[in-house]
Computed example of a mutant assay.
Amino acid sequence: MATPTRDYLNATTLKSEFASFSSPAANPELSETPKVGDHFPDSDQLPQLRSLNDKPVLITFLRHCGCPFAEKAFQAFRSLSDTHPDTTFIAISHSNQEDTDEWLISVGGTGDVLIIVDPERTLYAKWGLGFSSYWANIGPMTMWKALKLGSEELIYNRPTKSGYRWQTAGSFAIDTDGTVRWVYVSRNAPDIPGFEDGLRAVGRGKKERRRRSEAKP
């Protein structure tokens, strides 16, 4: 695994950093978010879902490359991919290919995660993930949690070289028959899913321990 590094704002990245606060002139048509029990939304951009080969799939749609919460989520996702070879892990980025590749190196590499780059955000829209609000992304509580993440876990905001800060993150678990078994749409930027819940939903995670009172005969 690559060693995580720090990168900093400079004159070149400052312009793109400001651009990340804007919105595109046109957005892809937003579909409804798939529900548990639905078949996954089919797309040529995700051919891996058309031939599952008896392996369930966990998919996470990242906010943007540079976001500290996306980094924390990806680290947790990557760690699970290393210990669950019986499951396919796919991460979707809407930053461009070059910036996504640079970000992945800076956060320690891909591990066993497949990376799909979707700069037009057509996949995001197909899975019902659009833009969210100011308060969900850069409100006071989000800023406080970002500072807390940096001080406690040394995960800091990195330059956002492409992508949009308003993009909603979401994660899904797909069973071997193509059925959606777990859905988690983040309510705000710091809202990171428990990916173990997704694994349990497709029968690959550790089972919850019973309470002592329930274990007694």
Rank of each mutant, 00 (worst) to 15 (best):
M1H: 09
T5S: 13
R6K: 00
R6F: 11
L9K: 01
L9F: 02
N10C: 11
A11F: 01
T13N: 12
E17C: 00
A19Y: 10
A19Q: 14
S20P: 05
S20F: 07
S22L: 14
P24L: 11
A26E: 05
N27H: 11
N27E: 12
N27F: 12
E29Q: 07
L30F: 07
L30Y: 09
S31W: 05
E32D: 14
T33H: 09
P34C: 14
K35L: 06
V36P: 04
G37W: 12
H39A: 01
F40L: 04
D44S: 08
L46N: 01
P47T: 03
P47M: 03
L52P: 09
D54Y: 14
K55V: 06
P56E: 15
I59L: 15
T60G: 13
G66V: 14
C67N: 15
P68S: 14
K72N: 04
S79N: 06
L80C: 00
S81N: 05
S81T: 03
T83S: 07
T83H: 02
H84G: 00
D86A: 05
I92L: 06
N96Q: 10
N96W: 03
Q97P: 00
E98A: 05
T100R: 06
W103K: 00
L104K: 13
L104G: 13
I105F: 04
V107S: 08
V107L: 08
G109I: 13
T110I: 05
G111C: 10
D118K: 07
R121Q: 07
R121V: 10
R121N: 04
Y124W: 07
A125F: 02
A125G: 06
K126Q: 07
G130W: 06
F131Q: 11
S133R: 02
A136S: 01
A136T: 01
N137G: 05
P140W: 11
M143T: 15
W144T: 11
K145L: 14
K148T: 15
L149W: 06
G150C: 10
E152I: 09
E152N: 14
N157C: 07
R158M: 11
P159T: 03
K161D: 01
A169H: 07
F172H: 01
A173Q: 01
D175N: 08
D175Q: 07
D175M: 02
T176M: 08
T179P: 03
R181G: 02
R181D: 06
W182H: 11
Y184K: 07
R187K: 13
A189C: 14
D191M: 13
I192E: 15
I192R: 14
D197Q: 10
L199M: 12
A201I: 04
R204I: 03
K206W: 07
R210M: 13
S213H: 10
P217M: 13
